[in-house]
Design a protein around this nucleic acid. Structure first.
Lengths: 355, 355
DNA sequence: GGAGATTGTGGGAACGTTTCCATTTTCGCA
DNA sequence: TGCGAAAATGGAAACGTTCCCACAATCTCC
């Protein structure tokens, strides 16, 4: 009942509060708050006392209380189709790097389960559930996510940006390479080696990226003056596991291609399969991938591919988002990043008499 | 000035609030709250009205306000040394899977920058900064992080668990394989093929995992009745890039080993290097990795290795954490998960006359 | 040496929930 | 019909910040 517990004193049960710091430093609570936000508006002596109190109490500001007032979470939601996919690794790394610079934090979301992962009886999508009030911005690594779904969607003006794969929702800025041009160059590289019969294996068919690449392939066919009819196009959702399947179909084709374009995963799997069948690469068939995953450089033969600056893409995305959040810009602009053709052992001239 | 705006009415500026829902549904605010937490204690008719209001207003509960009251964030912090490393992919995937089941969310932290990433003038570590009040639990994918650092560290009783790599801090439960036993088996596998001269390349030297594996290797040497002196042990931090280096040193050794044990990364890089030098694998040298990364199965020759159930490890870790959070258990127990020896093409009998 | 500016400080009202408690309504049953 | 119990409901006090405002103390300058 004594005076000393007039104001809560030192942390009773839970974590120490700002009030506790204020009491210990013999100042008002608003002065403590000020010490954090505008230290130079606090007298040096007072500041010192407050700092000491903070250290003694081991005080850490309560983030929820702050967020409740200020309406900024310091979190950025990153949605991706598979957390485990190595393709996303460097992107995530870049995002994290930028986030760290402003003490922001990454919230990880998985689109695998798609929509409808709502709790209770709010019939909102997982995305919305997760996003509204839980993060300040959204970085999409999966274009198929319906961002502007619902009456409001998550779009209360929070920055949204799509990385590496354009969003199906229009009006979402895109940061990534020019897939069409990149594929065009890759195909032309093979063409320059002498190839005339191509197979194009499209992964994640239907996605804007897949379509852009396919278009780039067609551009090249046209540019080489070849007949579209001669070129095989396979579509589907292929991973490492599809090697045997794809290989079989390609080899059975009435007119066997001398060059195959696809993804790094399919490419490497294909390499394995062709070796088993005793078909030499690039002697009989050239193979090219896409993305320049680590594995492309380590396979045998090493895989010709196109490198995307994945780390930089992640970095750029997060920086753009932060600029918008911090009011340094009011719109996120599309950013086309440079790709790089990486010719390796798996591409070479076609067998003689087969041009 | 009219009566209708007696209670804030419909969302003026920001997001709709629970009060707005209450007004629209013509009930008290506590009834709305109850509708969420104990729907069966609310009259069906009332419930229906509330649901309709929620739908109409597009209401989503404010998480910060809830957290402020209830002191549960629904977030779990996952700290890892490199976000981009493919080894962590499946682990993260498992964690995410389990998290999704209870509507929890993953906060990603990077230990790369280590300690000292504090903001303002709280001299707390990044970890503590991040953890206290920002997450309900911590999953460590990097044993070297000093969890119990500081007067309190983050340890206010929040569940902590180390996955795949034991924490240097004692008292942190470990979920992962028995690295010593696994390496022992791997070495014995090579021994059974006839090998007598080994090289062991230790990665991330100094970590508990590395030490356990090295111990397992020594166990095997002993079990085979071989002299320790004959066996080469290299230590360091090796990634894919170390192939040439490691290869050179091994081949220069006074007594060239016929079998090399290391990680998948080093193993694959080594394979590349040996091929370039015209040394046949496994004809002249057998190579074994560890972890069974995707690349191990795709390299040429495919790499003998030990598989860890990474997805299951992540899943188990998150489940254990959640059980503790939800009061279903009061201690997280160590969990040794089963590993699996994966013999592939890169291991075979030593060259004749070299046993 | 006093008026007005400047600097430093503290009080208290939000922010949007949850939860305790009190109150009102409904129901079961004699 | 009436009485107690049970079921529904609403009011209001936290939770720990931030920030507007008011007040006090110290300067500045003629």
């Amino acid at each position: 009942m004594a005076k000393q517990l007039r104001k809560g004193t030192t942390a009773p049960g839970g974590a120490p509060t700002m009030q506790n710091v204020a009491d210990l430093a013999r100042v008002g609570i608003s002065t403590v708050s000020r010490a954090f936000s505008e230290p130079d508006k606090v007298a040096p002596a007072t500041l010192a006392r407050i700092e000491r109190a903070i250290a003694r109490l081991n005080y850490v500001p309560n983030e929820s209380a702050r967020t409740l007032r200020v309406k900024e979470t310091g979190r950025v939601l990153v949605m991706m189709p598979e957390v485990g996919n190595p393709f996303f690794g460097p992107i995530l790394d870049g995002i994290e790097e930028a986030a760290a610079q402003t003490n922001r934090v990454i919230l990880l979301g998985n689109t695998r389960r798609g929509i409808g992962r709502a709790g209770a009886y709010t019939s909102r999508s997982y995305l919305t559930q997760l996003a509204v009030g839980r993060a300040d911005a959204l970085i999409l690594l999966d274009g198929s996510l319906p961002v502007d779904e619902g009456p409001l969607g998550m779009t209360r003006g929070e920055p949204v940006v799509a990385v590496s794969e354009p969003s199906l929702a229009n009006s979402v800025p895109y940061i990534g390479i020019d897939n069409r041009q990149a594929t065009f160059e890759l195909a032309m590289h093979l063409g320059a080696l002498g190839h005339r019969h191509f197979a194009y294996v499209s992964c994640r068919a239907g996605s804007p990226t897949a379509m852009a690449r396919e278009a780039g392939f067609r551009d090249a066919i046209l540019a080489m003056g070849l007949s579209q009819a001669d070129q095989i196009i396979e579509r589907g959702q292929f991973g490492y596991s599809s090697g045997p399947d794809v290989a079989k179909r390609l080899l059975q084709a009435s007119r066997r291609p001398t060059a195959v374009l696809s993804s790094d995963e399919v490419g490497v799997a294909l390499l394995c399969e062709l070796r088993k069948s005793g078909i030499s690469v690039p002697g009989e068939i050239s193979v090219a991938g896409f993305d320049d995953l680590e594995v492309a450089g380590l396979s045998h033969p090493s895989l010709t591919t196109v490198a995307q600056p994945r780390y930089d893409m992640g970095l750029a995305a997060m920086l753009a988002v932060q600029d918008k959040l911090d009011g340094k810009s009011d719109r996120i602009a599309d950013q086309i990043m440079p790709h790089r053709l990486v010719p390796r052992e798996s591409s070479g001239p076609p067998p003689l008499g087969n041009s």
